[in-house]
């Protein structure tokens, strides 16, 4: 059991970060406002969690302009995708009780 708990990723122990990563796993790019709407969060709250994931190198940021409006797009990095899969696998294994 302890083994599987070790596989859990600290970056995903927060529900919001887990949510952001879930969205990025199934979408190539998602912009800031889309994420905000999906998770019903405030700007500041979302930004801080995005920063944490960025620091872990799990997501990459692409800044551009749509006309005059700044547009920030996020996508999951390869490293992030692998980490997320490992995390979900560990969760499922704990649930199945394989590690007991």
């Amino acid at each position: 059991m302890i083994n599987f708990f070790q596989d859990l990723d600290k970056a995903f122990d927060n529900k919001i970060r887990l949510g952001i990563m879930s969205v990025l796993m199934v979408n190539e790019f998602v912009d800031f406002t889309e994420l905000k709407q999906l998770m019903s969060l405030t700007d500041g709250n979302l930004a801080s969690h995005i920063k944490a994931l960025e620091k872990a190198n799990y997501i990459s940021v692409k800044k551009s302009f749509l006309g005059r409006k700044p547009n920030t797009k996020y996508s999951a990095t390869e490293q992030g995708k692998i980490a997320f899969k490992k995390h979900v696998d560990a969760l499922e294994k704990i649930l199945k009780g394989k590690g007991l």
């Binding site: 887990l18 949510g19 879930s22 969205v23 889309e34 999906l38 979900v88 969760l91 649930l95």
Partner: peptide, 21 residues
């Protein structure tokens, strides 16, 4: 408690994936 917490987390992941696609 641990199991329901994990189940909730997996449910959250699934729902976020569905909602966004």
């Amino acid at each position: 408690v641990m199991d329901t917490k994990i189940q909730e987390e997996l449910k959250h992941i699934r729902s976020m994936m569905e909602k966004s696609t």
